[in-house]
Simulated scan of single mutants.
Amino acid sequence: NVEAKFVDSTVKLTEKMKLDCVYPKKATIIQTSWMKSNLTYKENIAALHPVYGIHISDNYKGRIHFQKDSSEDSSLYFVKSTLEDVGLYCCSIQTFPDGTWEKVIKIIQPDAFEVPEKQNHYVFTEPGGNVTFTCPYNIGGLVQQVMWERIKVDQMDFIVLCNSLGQKSFGSDFEGRTLVDCTSKTSSMMVLQNITASDFAMYRCVVTGRNKTFAMSFTL
Rank of each mutant, 00 (worst) to 15 (best):
L83D: 12
L161Y: 00
K42I: 08
S57I: 01
T100E: 10
S57F: 12
Y203N: 06
A27T: 05
S184H: 10
L13Y: 12
G129I: 07
I105F: 02
Q193L: 15
Q144H: 12
G140I: 03
Y77R: 07
T132I: 14
Q145C: 03
I93E: 02
L192T: 06
I105L: 15
P24E: 04
E84T: 09
Y137N: 02
I151D: 01
M17F: 12
T178K: 06
D85K: 09
L83P: 05
V143Q: 00
N130C: 07
T28M: 04
C91A: 12
Q109L: 14
N1I: 11
S70A: 12
L19N: 07
I105H: 00
S169N: 07
M156Y: 01
D157G: 03
L88Y: 14
I151H: 05
G128H: 07
E117N: 13
P136W: 07
V104C: 02
T219H: 11
F200M: 04
N120H: 14
G62A: 11
F124Q: 10
I139C: 03
I93H: 01
F66W: 09
V86G: 03
E117Q: 11
F6R: 10
H121C: 03
M189Y: 04
S184C: 02
K16R: 15
T183G: 00
T134K: 14
E84P: 00
G62M: 09
K18R: 14
G129Y: 03
L13W: 09
